[in-house]
Amino acid sequence: MAGEAVLIIDMQAGILAEVPDADALTARLAGLADRARAAGRPVFVIQHEAADLVPGEPDWRLAEPIAPRDGDVLLAKRNADSFIGTDLDKRLRDLDVSRVIVTGLATEFCIDSTCRAALSRGYDLTLVEDGHSTPVEAGDSLLSVESIVARYNQVLSWVDYPDREVSVIPAAAITFG
């Protein structure tokens, strides 16, 4: 899998504040990104901008362990799909990336949209099973965060795109050979 890139989506203070177990998720993703960098794989850190995520404001800031390192690519987006309105596709193609490893927030919005968009653009997909989550406050949803994450892991593992490989695996099982 030499043509892999890690995408870390929307790991921002204002969203993480409402995510259960945010510190453990952040640590897992930071470790995965470090392993990717050590293996020479590109890491893309994608940061959402919106009415409640204004550049420069505290809620917009990335979690420190996720902040881009030398050689990482930082992209700003304004859509759930990380490809719309960004040069993500061009940058991935310029690096001969054939597989994206998707992580971050929020499962049913930006993670789902970006996964499906990557498949539609011809990329193989690895969704990090324990590498995405969503902010759900009590009473905000009939579903728990755990059930939302589990359901998307299941659904995305069933996705059938001809000539694409889709996998859903835990962060610790991802190796860069």
Rank of each mutant, 00 (worst) to 15 (best):
S141C: 14
V102I: 13
F109E: 06
F83R: 02
R116M: 07
A106T: 14
S113Q: 12
V43P: 00
L53C: 12
E64A: 15
L29T: 05
A13L: 12
T103F: 07
V145E: 13
I101L: 13
T107R: 09
R35G: 06
A13R: 13
E108H: 13
P68F: 05
P65S: 15
R37Y: 03
G122P: 02
T86V: 03
R35K: 14
R164H: 05
V166I: 07
V19E: 07
S144D: 07
N153M: 04
D124C: 10
P135K: 04
L88A: 03
E49W: 07
Q12W: 01
S82A: 15
P58G: 10
A63M: 14
I15V: 12
C115W: 08
V19R: 06
L95Q: 14
G122T: 01
D70M: 07
Y123S: 03
G71H: 12
V19K: 05
V159F: 08
D70P: 06
Y161G: 00
I8P: 01
L16T: 01
P55I: 11
E129P: 03
Q47A: 11
Q12R: 05
D94S: 13
P170T: 04
D160G: 03
R116E: 01
I169M: 00
L53I: 08
D87C: 02
P65K: 12
D130S: 01
L105C: 04
T114Y: 06
V166R: 01
P58T: 11
I84L: 15
D160F: 14
T103K: 07
W158A: 10
I15K: 05
V43H: 02
V43K: 01
L75S: 04
V128C: 02
V159I: 08
A50T: 12
T114H: 08
D160R: 08
P135V: 03
M11V: 03
V168M: 03
A17P: 05
L119R: 12
E64I: 09
L142I: 09
V97F: 10
V149P: 00
A67Y: 12
G40R: 08
A51F: 13
R78W: 04
E18C: 07
L119V: 09
W60N: 12
G14E: 02
R91Q: 15
D70T: 13
P65T: 15
R78H: 07
I84M: 11
L74A: 11
